[in-house]
């Protein structure tokens, strides 16, 4: 078991290394650089800037220096946000993104899973159709539409609901809805179909034949099996949601990490791009590892490190 974790951590490091390397060289391969402007800067200034940020070193030297930095969690200075390092940007943006993200994740779990279960239990009844129509809308309507509608219909009319920022708890509602809409709907659909599948299984009939109450049959015997595919989806989803969303953070004027991520790409802010990518990839890999651990609790056939079948 311990050996398994070592192996996983090692492979995570290798993966991160590859991701950082690929990102580094891909960014350099595209023409232009962080100091390219519409109105071209004088060559002299560019040369000075390049010298300041060591961008005039041979690429391989830049690469080695950069990897050294990453190894010590020092992602280097931002080329655009003057005086700030990538670490500063993450430190500034992460709390906002995380706070909204955590609310969104909680909403997904607290509403998405029960909605899926109820839908499955009432298959082809009005409540099932209602949930499924909502869920279909949820996965098809993009978050900026949800966010805009929310602002237009609610916060611009109800004076005590703030439109932007995260000044009080109520302000979280809008961004959390916009951020969770897709995944909440997806989780509801996934739970429903997984539950329907499980309810057809022979062991559910056995549980009933043994005289267990319907609450136990559903809440214990069916649910644990039905959650397996949901856990697979939810792990990486949490990583994606916690790292924020450019669109949602923009619309609700939240100071978050998602904004930096996207802006850095258009700004060709090399260090920010790679730093954010590595940070996101690290979080993602960590969540996948958590999913694996969660699996070994839910599905006993999966022993960490190996999968045993029948």
């Amino acid at each position: 078991m311990f050996g398994y974790y070592l192996k996983r951590i090692f492979s995570a490091i290798v993966t991160l290394f590859i991701i950082a390397t690929l990102t580094f060289f891909m960014m350099r391969a595209i023409p232009g650089g962080p100091f390219t402007r519409e109105k071209a800067l004088p060559d002299q200034i560019i040369a000075q800037l390049n010298a300041k940020y060591n961008l005039d070193d041979p690429v391989i030297v830049q690469y080695l220096n950069y990897m050294k930095g990453i190894a010590t969690f020092n992602f280097g200075p931002s080329f655009r946000e003057l005086g700030l390092t990538v670490n500063d940007l993450i430190r500034q943006g992460l709390p906002g993104s995380m706070k909204v993200g955590i609310v969104a994740v909680l909403m997904i779990l607290v509403f998405g899973i029960p909605m899926g279960i109820i839908s499955a239990l009432k298959q082809n009844k009005p409540i099932d159709y209602t949930v499924m129509v909502l869920a279909t809308i949820g996965v098809t309507v993009p978050s900026f539409v949800v966010a805009t509608l929310y602002i237009y219909l609610i916060s611009s009319r109800v004076s005590w609901i703030p439109i932007t920022g995260l000044s009080n708890p109520i302000a979280f509602i809008g961004p959390a809805i916009a951020l969770s809409g897709y995944s909440l709907s997806y989780v509801a659909r996934l739970t429903r179909s997984s539950m329907l599948e499980v309810l057809r299984q022979d062991y559910i009939r056995t549980a009933r034949a043994n005289g267990l109450s319907e609450t136990r049959v559903i809440g214990k015997h069916a649910l644990k099996n039905a959650l397996i595919p949901v856990v697979t989806y939810v792990g990486p989803m949490i990583a994606a949601i916690l790292t924020g969303s450019f669109v949602v953070e923009r619309i609700f004027a939240i100071n978050g990490i998602g904004r930096y991520f996207v802006e850095s790409v258009s700004n060709r802010d090399y260090t920010v791009i790679i730093g954010m990518t590595v940070f996101y990839a690290g979080l993602y890999i960590f969540m996948v590892l958590l999913v694996d651990i969660a699996y070994s609790f839910i599905d006993p056939r999966i022993k960490l490190g190996k999968r045993t079948g029948d």
Binding site: D202, Y203, R205, T206, N210, G211, N225, R301
Partner: peptide, 29 residues
């Protein structure tokens, strides 16, 4: 009704099924 019936099932009247591979819940000991 189902609730009254569940007092009989597994208690006074029991049943075992054809396929033991699929008739037992894999998720619990």
């Amino acid at each position: 009704d189902q609730k009254e019936m569940s007092n009989y099932r597994g208690n006074e009247i029991s049943m075992i099924f054809q396929d033991p591979m699929t008739s037992i819940n894999p998720a619990f000991t």
